[in-house]
């Protein structure tokens, strides 16, 4: 098994007359799991396709280990891609699908059959060799597609929203299964997703993208707690922003705006010291399973909070957010670094 590092230097892609990717720089450590996260149309698939060799670069360089991939055709790159639609070949059986990459590498028939059987066993699909791929369920197809990619021990695995066609329960179980498999193989993996929960759960490193640019590259926790700017924060579930008032806790001296997540904001609880508070009228109160989701109309904006008990719409309520849950942003909407906070507190 040869797992390798991937390095992207100023990768730029134009499609038609449009710039789709703009100066992407990224280092992916060998054996790590990187997620490309971002809203629809931000260029995640394009970046993955550029790495696999299906989209020509306008500029920049792609290196895998010691090799430069930039000018190689896709069949010479030895990357293994799993397509969003799985792209299993309908005229081949399961065994033929899995064995095809081996056949291309001149592996003898008996050896091929052995490897296919082993792979099927690992995917918990033992005995499926002669099935037609059209007779498989979505989850089974997904596994076969993954198996087909992994069967050649590739140095790099590329996954384009591999779980998005599956229903929620299978998705959750496949998530951890996929991650376990990746760890046990130690294969460098890049996965595209637009599901932040999936990215946070699975990745060692998340690349947040927006309209063809990289916004932030960070570990899941850092990304979640310190999104680079307001846009990134909104994408990561920071639904509420308030302009800072004089009596608000001093989280960062230059903070103009605070962001916070709905689940960190509470309604009608005894106000603690050093908490941000806002008063407003309740517009809506919806039961969500583990509490109520409350919308409040304050002078500035509409805010969302959670409550353990139901609140009648039309009544006035006090919303409070503990200081630790506030994410400070400067005048340019950029996140204020933690260093700034320490200075303030000192």
């Amino acid at each position: 098994m040869s797992t390798e590092a991937l390095t992207l230097t100023d990768v730029t892609v134009d499609l038609g007359r449009q710039r789709i990717l703009d100066g992407i720089r990224l280092d992916v450590a060998p054996g790590s799991f990187t997620c490309l996260l971002g809203p629809s149309g931000c260029g995640k698939t394009t970046l993955l396709r550029a790495i696999a060799g299906f989209t020509p670069l306008r500029g920049g360089e792609i290196r895998l280990g010691s090799r430069t991939l930039t000018h190689l055709p896709p069949e010479k790159r030895e990357t293994a891609m799993v397509f969003q639609s799985y792209a299993l070949w309908p005229h081949m059986s399961v065994a033929e699908n899995l064995g095809y990459p081996l056949k291309l590498r001149g592996v003898a028939r008996a050896e091929r059959a052995r490897k296919v059987a082993k792979t099927l066993e690992r995917l918990e699909l033992a005995g499926f060799e002669e099935r037609a791929v059209t007779e498989l369920s979505g989850g089974q197809r997904q596994r076969i597609a993954l198996g087909r990619a992994l069967i050649i021990d590739p140095p790099l695995l590329l996954l384009d929203e591999p779980l998005s066609n599956l229903d929620a329960a299978i998705r959750r179980s496949l998530r951890s299964e996929l991650r376990r498999l990746q760890k046990s193989l130690g294969i460098t993996t890049i996965m595209v997703t637009h599901d932040q929960e999936e990215a946070l759960q699975m990745a060692d490193q998340i690349v947040l993208m927006r309209s063809g640019k990289m916004v932030q590259v960070a570990a899941p926790q850092a990304l979640y707690e310190q999104p680079a700017d307001l846009g990134a924060a909104r994408f990561l579930g920071v639904d509420n922003t308030v302009t800072r008032h004089a009596q608000d806790p001093v989280v960062a001296s230059q903070a103009v705006t605070f962001g916070f997540r709905t689940r960190d904001a509470r309604i009608n609880e005894p106000v603690r010291p050093a908490a941000l508070t806002r008063k407003g009228r309740v517009i809506e109160c919806v039961y969500t399973g583990d509490g109520y989701h409350v919308s409040i109309d304050t002078v500035d904006a509409e805010l969302f909070a959670t409550s353990a008990t139901s609140v009648a719409p039309g009544t006035f309520a006090v919303l409070q957010v503990p200081e630790s849950a506030l994410i400070p942003f400067g005048p340019d909407d950029r996140h204020l670094p933690p260093l700034d906070r320490h200075e303030d507190i000192a």
Binding site: A52, F54, P74, T79, S85, A87, L88, Y100, P101, L104
Partner: peptide
């Protein structure tokens, strides 16, 4: 489907093999 061709090329098949095998 274009992805069938791309999957084959990704697996290491040149254009000619793609034509005759996919």
């Amino acid at each position: 489907e274009q992805s069938h061709i791309e999957a084959a090329r990704n697996a290491g098949a040149g254009r000619l093999r793609c034509l005759f095998q996919i």
